[in-house]
Design a protein around this nucleic acid. Structure first.
Length: 235
DNA sequence: GCGACAG
DNA sequence: ATCTTGTCGC
């Protein structure tokens, strides 16, 4: 995969902000019409003291199960990379920490997936460009942000049953959904990243959820990146 | 000025 | 994100 949008980043916050404002204009939120057959999920975990980042991308072939209204995974393939972390964690600027680790992985993948699942925010971000939106725009791929906690937005707590949801809002405007993916477990914060709507985003995420809180592709990629960290640090 | 703050 | 065991609740 080759990025559609390129930019040279000088490493300072002010320019990072400019890049976000610029790329946020390129986000498209139009309906996602097809059923995804190939899903790419990405995640990064970190060494102790966050010196080194371990990036994993999982390419999943999925099939839709009409009876259960869920997807199941037909095949999976993982791509990995580890590198020193180029940027500290600053809320609102996660992209500049994780994208440099993820780019070398994504360039190895020849196939273009139907959908990108990202562990982080989509447009539910102070400048409407969370990690999922950033990746979606630079690769021009449909992308969904699936965060385990809230970055921005107001919401009512959804009911305790699986599938219960409430909208995430800023200034009364809907920017995502707070979705209970497993009964009585902390909800997920779903927002579209690129080329899908809020409704597409949460419905797709929910079809990927089965018995765990996280959608299965993200859960597996998450496990994989933690295993990778453990193995490398054992040496 | 104060609090909030994805991973 | 990471450090960490058992334990309380749906």
């Amino acid at each position: 995969m080759i990025p559609v949008v390129q930019h040279q980043w000088k490493g300072n916050l002010a320019q990072a902000r400019e890049i976000q404002v610029f790329l946020a204009q390129k986000v498209i939120l139009k309906p996602f019409k097809i059923k995804p057959e190939t899903v790419l999920a990405v995640d990064v975990s970190y060494s102790r003291f966050e010196k080194c980042g371990y990036g994993v991308a999982g390419l999943f072939k999925v099939a839709f199960d009409n009876r259960r209204h869920k997807f199941h995974i037909v095949s999976e393939q993982y791509y990995t990379n580890s590198d020193t972390v180029p940027f500290p964690y600053i809320p609102g600027y996660l992209s500049f920490r994780e994208i440099p680790i993820l780019l070398p992985i994504l360039s190895q993948i020849s196939e273009r997936p139907d959908l990108l699942l990202v562990d982080g925010a989509g447009i539910a971000h102070p400048r409407h460009l969370g990690l999922a939106a950033h990746l979606g725009v630079i690769f021009d791929l449909p992308a969904i942000g699936c965060a385990k906690s809230r970055l921005i937005g107001d919401f009512l707590m959804p009911g305790l049953e699986s599938g219960a949801y409430e909208y995430l809002r800023t200034n009364g405007k809907r920017i995502g959904v707070v979705l209970r993916t497993k009964p009585a477990c902390r909800p997920l914060f779903i927002s579209p990243g690129h080329r899908c709507t809020i409704t597409d985003a949460w419905r797709l995420i929910f079809t990927f959820c089965d018995q765990y809180r996280l959608p299965e592709p993200l859960r597996r990629v998450d496990l994989m990146s933690k295993r990778m960290r453990k193995q490398i640090e054992k040496k």
